[in-house]
């Protein structure tokens, strides 16, 4: 009896998740039909024009797609060296020691900080620094947003990769050591190849988080509707344009914003799919 109820509960909750996800896709698609119908799907994603003036409305998502991809991949790039070293520190070098417990809990604490706090820190601390270093005239832009994003996603990448690194079988490592391998060689030839797909998965997770991050990016990216042409130039990401403009929009503009939401959903899905594909290939080898 208990078993049956438990089974039913599981089924219901699984169905509920599917139902909610399906509902989201439905409402995104039905909300964006007006924009896609008006501009055409292909034209919508290849136009960089964003003109909300009532008599000459024209909306395209290209500059925001580029803004999102630039900030997210740059953040991923910045976060790799830090998260790999943190993961090796807590998962291999000082595994189980007090020091590693402290480091990993501090890193996990970073994940719990609300993104508005990151945004404020970027606004009041990082932005003046960027200005002083003459990296950008007002301190806003792709680079500033990416640095803060990188810090935000380090805990996601490092805590998961550290798990995978510490899961590498002891026998393999001890075998390598007994053959006279140095620690560096063990890491390069035993640990990383064995935990590679897991580490890769943790970076995909971190990237997914960077793609959708809204508040901190909105506060730091500069919020101008143009294609960012350099690291110091300002732009807008898909999430930040929605956050900026959703409150006061209606009609075609509202539909265009929902269409951007749908595109973001699709990009995240594609990146997750690619991640899964790479992991399964890795595992076969």
């Amino acid at each position: 009896m208990k078993d049956k109820i438990f089974r039913l509960l599981l089924m219901l909750s699984a169905a509920l998740v599917l139902f909610i996800c399906g509902g989201m896709v439905y409402s995104l698609v039905s909300g964006s039909l007006e924009a896609f119908g008006h501009f055409g799907f292909f034209k919508f994603i290849t136009t960089a024009e964003w003109n909300p003036r009532p008599d000459q409305e024209e909306y395209g998502a290209l500059s925001f797609i580029i803004g999102t991809l630039m900030t997210s991949f740059l953040a991923l790039l910045f976060c790799i060296p830090f998260s790999i070293s943190v993961a090796l520190f807590t998962g291999e070098y000082f595994r189980g020691s007090k020091l590693s417990v402290i480091v990993s809990s501090v890193i996990e604490l970073l994940a719990g900080i609300p993104s508005i706090v990151y945004g404020l820190w970027g606004f009041y601390a990082l932005r003046p620094l960027m200005e002083q270093l003459n990296l950008s005239t007002q301190g806003f832009g792709i680079l500033t947003a990416s640095i803060v994003l990188a810090i935000m996603i380090i805990p996601y990448a490092s805590s998961l990769s550290s798990e995978f690194i510490s899961m590498v079988p002891k026998d393999l490592k001890e075998g390598a050591y007994s053959l006279g391998a140095t620690r560096m060689e063990v890491i390069r030839h035993v640990i990383l190849p064995n935990s590679g797909s897991g580490v890769f998965a943790s970076y995909i997770l971190a990237l997914g988080r960077a793609l959708g991050e809204t508040m901190a990016v909105t506060m730091l990216i500069g919020n101008t509707e143009n294609i960012p042409r350099s690291l110091s130039s300002t732009g807008n990401s898909m999430a930040s344009i929605i956050a900026n403009q959703f409150g006061e929009s209606d009609g075609l503009k509202l539909s265009s914003l929902i269409a951007i939401g749908l595109l973001l959903f699709m990009i995240t899905a594609v990146i997750n799919f690619i991640g899964k594909l790479v992991i399964s290939k890795f595992n076969k080898v």
Partner: peptide, 10 residues
């Protein structure tokens, strides 16, 4: 309520 601005920062 929102416009395309020729100059400035947002």
């Amino acid at each position: 309520k929102s416009l395309k601005w020729p100059a400035g920062i947002a």
